[in-house]
């Protein structure tokens, strides 16, 4: 059951958009959004591969679909963690981006 290649191209386009967004967006939350776009694009490719692997009558290939479900949950955990760290960073330092443009001494710490 060969589905039209349209969703494969969509997945690839989403990956491109996601990567572009991650590189260029300065605000942290926009970067997390772009990361989710990137993840959605990759999972869409899993879906396309699943559909192509499907037997005539039996529907799509279940293994990649299971991988997507696992991937979605892991991506959600990653987003939750990233958002919490971003919020804590904002609450403590008021920063809304992760760029080092302010020349802050990277990472170096005083007493352990």
């Amino acid at each position: 059951m060969s589905g039209a290649p349209i969703f494969g191209l969509t997945g690839a386009a989403l990956v491109g958009l996601g990567l572009f967004g991650l590189l260029v967006q300065a605000a942290v939350l926009r970067k997390i959004l772009a990361f989710n776009l990137l993840g959605a694009g990759v999972f869409l490719l899993f879906g396309v591969v699943a559909q192509r692997g499907g037997t005539a009558g039996g529907g799509a290939d279940a293994v990649p679909q299971a991988m997507v479900i696992t991937g979605l949950v892991v991506a959600f955990a990653a987003t939750a963690l990233a958002v919490v760290v971003a919020l804590r960073m904002h609450q403590i330092t008021g920063a809304a981006t992760i760029s080092e443009s302010d020349g802050a001494e990277p990472g170096g710490s005083d007493a352990a």
Partner: peptide, 11 residues
């Protein structure tokens, strides 16, 4: 170490 440059290096 700037974020966009490192990202582009990765691509």
């Amino acid at each position: 170490r700037a974020w966009p440059v490192a990202g582009m290096a990765l691509l």
